[in-house]
Every structure is written in C-alpha cells, then in structure tokens.
Simulated scan of single mutants.
Amino acid sequence: MRRLPLLLAALLTLSLLGTPASAAPAPDVPLRVLSFNIHTGIGSDAALDLERTASVIRDSRADVVGLEEVDVHWAARSDFRDQARDLARQLHMRVFFAPIYDLPPLTEGAPRRRYGVAVLSRHPIVATENHPLTRLSTQDPNPVPAPAPGFAEAVVLVRGVPVHVYATHLDYRADPAVRELQVADTLRILAADRPGARQVLLGDFNAGPGAPELAPLWTRLADAWTSAEPGLTYPADVPAKRIDYVTVSPGVRVRNAAVLDTLASDHRPVVADLLVRR
C-alpha cells in the first residue's frame, strides 16, 4: 500500500492542528540506520553463520536496517531457512521482506523459494510495498530488461513521525545500462510519496558515488557519507570500493556515518545517525 492508514493520517493531522502557534518547535527525532548486504549469511571466510550476522546488527544498535541478499527457504547454501524472520526473531525487530524472486519449491510440499531484500525496524511499520524495478533476471538464461519486484518500502513510525525507508539492490554488471534504468525507476517511486515525505534509501548500489548512472539520485537524495575517509565497503576482507549506501531526502539530517569492520559478509555495513525533522 502506498499511503498511511486513514486513522493514522487523521491522528497526525489532529496533532498538528492542536499545536499552539506560540509553542516551540518540536525537537528533531534521532534515528540510527544500517545498510547491510548480508550475502545470505555467508561471511568472507565462506562460513554460513546467520547468528554472526545478527550479532553485527545488534552491536550496531541500529533502529532500522536495510538488508540485501536475503534468502527465504531458497537453497541449501542457507539451510533453506527463512532468514528474514530468523533475524527479526533474534533481534526482536519487526520485518518486511520484499522478494526479487519467488519460485516453486524444489520438493513438493516445501515452502516457496524466495530471495530479495528486507527492512528490519524497532519502530512500528505502518505501511509496506514491494515496488518493481527494471531488472535482468539471474534465473533466466537469456534475460532481457523487464520490471521485477524487490524494491522494499516500509513506512516506519518513529516517535510519531512517518519515515519512508527503502531497501534496494541495484544491478551488479559492469555495463551500467540497467542501473541507469533502475535509478530512473527509483526516482519515479520516490516522487510518488506525499510532498515533504521523510525518505531514507538504503542499499547496495553496485557503483561508486561518482558513477555517472548514480548522478540523478544526488539531485533528490544526499549521500550520508561526508567524511574525507574513502568509506570502502567491498570486498569486506580487503575493501577497494564504496558501493553500499545510506542516503536521505530533505527533512532528514545526517549527524555521522561509519563503515563497520566485520567479515560476517562479503560487504561491510554502513551505519548512520540521522535526525528526522518533525
């Protein structure tokens, strides 16, 4: 669904109408976010250890997390576990999983095999949608660019402030053509939110911040990484590229950002402390 439930929208309107004109502005709302490509729980040591993944997220103290490369009953590589629910359970967080692929099981009676992205949140999730992006399927031997799901949107209610949190995974190929289409899709989806919506886009963009195909994103969103340090995230053991991001819309201010040193995945996660304007 695209919009907040009507009751919530009415309550927000009433709260605004009930604020005296002379009252001091309400303080900005703090929010810590994490962007993490978890590589289906497989670390740089090639070991599957979803509990280690959960420990990284827990130690980050993030309120909201965007995850990429999440398996749900997908394959033996992840023991056919529902990684989205397992992480949510271990971390006592809410979860929205947005599959990119949703395939029949390998054996009759087993759950469907799904792979995609997810949003974890300590705050209530009041609306969700799995948006399509233009993709080249990795499951088709002769893929052509076509719309496919797997761009997660979760509206998170942070101390009464709705924040639209997106998790995405852009195309990995050296040719930027599909990423260019995905960036255009992303901007169209972001523009469909109500004017002034607080937006946070988390994800693995598979391109550096100076890549030409990402340039349109920076007309609407700000990169949370402002340090003079390179902030490299991939590969995790000897990082050489910055391809994992926290990005924010106007109305969301970045206090600081850091790359976490961990080998729990082939990517290093990015954590950022934000202030959301009421």
Results as ranks from 00 to 15, higher is better:
residue 86 D to A: 15
residue 230 P to Y: 13
residue 97 F to R: 00
residue 70 V to N: 03
residue 271 V to G: 01
residue 165 V to Y: 02
residue 55 S to W: 06
residue 113 R to I: 08
residue 109 G to V: 06
residue 66 G to C: 02
residue 11 L to Q: 07
residue 265 S to A: 15
residue 19 T to C: 11
residue 228 A to E: 12
residue 274 L to Q: 00
residue 256 N to T: 12
residue 147 P to H: 07
residue 165 V to I: 05
residue 18 G to A: 14
residue 249 S to Y: 07
residue 273 D to K: 08
residue 141 P to S: 09
residue 117 V to W: 00
residue 80 F to W: 11
residue 126 V to G: 07
residue 218 W to V: 11
residue 11 L to P: 06
residue 69 E to N: 12
residue 201 L to Q: 02
residue 140 D to M: 06
residue 72 V to L: 14
residue 97 F to C: 06
residue 116 G to W: 00
residue 118 A to Q: 13
residue 115 Y to W: 14
residue 71 D to R: 08
residue 145 P to Q: 10
residue 144 V to Y: 13
residue 10 A to Q: 09
residue 105 P to I: 15
residue 233 T to N: 13
residue 205 F to T: 01
residue 70 V to F: 11
residue 106 L to P: 05
residue 68 E to V: 12
residue 38 I to C: 02
residue 81 R to Y: 09
residue 160 G to H: 10
residue 44 S to P: 03
residue 131 H to R: 15
residue 152 A to V: 00
residue 47 A to H: 15
residue 134 T to A: 11
residue 57 I to Y: 07
residue 62 A to F: 01
residue 18 G to C: 14
residue 107 T to C: 09
residue 259 V to F: 07
residue 274 L to F: 03
residue 15 S to G: 13
residue 209 P to V: 14
residue 110 A to E: 13
residue 138 T to G: 05
residue 218 W to T: 13
residue 98 A to R: 01
residue 105 P to H: 10
residue 23 A to Q: 09
residue 150 G to R: 03
residue 162 P to H: 03
residue 143 P to E: 05
residue 127 A to T: 08
residue 130 N to L: 06
residue 188 R to C: 06
residue 107 T to N: 13
residue 35 S to D: 05
residue 98 A to I: 00
residue 179 R to P: 03
residue 223 D to I: 13
residue 233 T to G: 08
residue 135 R to F: 03
residue 140 D to C: 05
residue 273 D to G: 11
residue 157 L to N: 04
residue 107 T to Y: 10
residue 86 D to S: 13
residue 180 E to H: 07
residue 178 V to F: 07
residue 127 A to Q: 10
residue 103 L to P: 09
residue 191 A to P: 11
residue 88 A to N: 04
residue 79 D to Q: 14
residue 27 P to F: 04
residue 85 R to H: 09
residue 155 V to Y: 00
residue 267 H to Q: 00
residue 38 I to P: 00
residue 204 D to H: 02
residue 191 A to W: 15
residue 61 R to L: 15
residue 217 L to S: 06
residue 231 G to C: 14
residue 144 V to I: 05
residue 32 R to W: 02
residue 262 T to K: 01
residue 171 D to Y: 03
residue 247 T to K: 11
residue 254 V to E: 03
residue 118 A to H: 06
residue 51 E to F: 14
residue 4 L to P: 03
residue 142 N to S: 13
residue 221 L to A: 06
residue 213 E to M: 07
residue 2 R to M: 12
residue 95 V to R: 01
residue 34 L to D: 02
residue 92 H to C: 05
residue 105 P to F: 15
residue 250 P to G: 05
residue 4 L to E: 10
residue 54 A to Q: 04
residue 100 I to V: 15
residue 211 A to P: 07
residue 27 P to Y: 02
residue 234 Y to Q: 12
residue 120 L to D: 05
residue 190 L to P: 04
residue 170 L to T: 02
residue 110 A to D: 14
residue 118 A to G: 08
residue 265 S to Y: 01
residue 82 D to Q: 08
residue 230 P to F: 14
residue 11 L to K: 12
residue 155 V to H: 00
residue 75 A to I: 07
residue 83 Q to A: 09
residue 247 T to I: 08
residue 49 D to E: 08
residue 94 R to S: 06
residue 138 T to P: 06
residue 201 L to A: 08
residue 244 D to A: 10
residue 214 L to D: 01
residue 202 L to D: 01
residue 158 V to F: 10
residue 115 Y to M: 09
residue 64 V to K: 01
residue 255 R to L: 12
residue 203 G to W: 00
residue 121 S to Y: 04
residue 251 G to N: 07
residue 154 A to H: 01
residue 63 D to V: 09
residue 237 D to Y: 15
residue 119 V to L: 07
residue 87 L to K: 00
residue 211 A to Y: 06
residue 118 A to D: 13
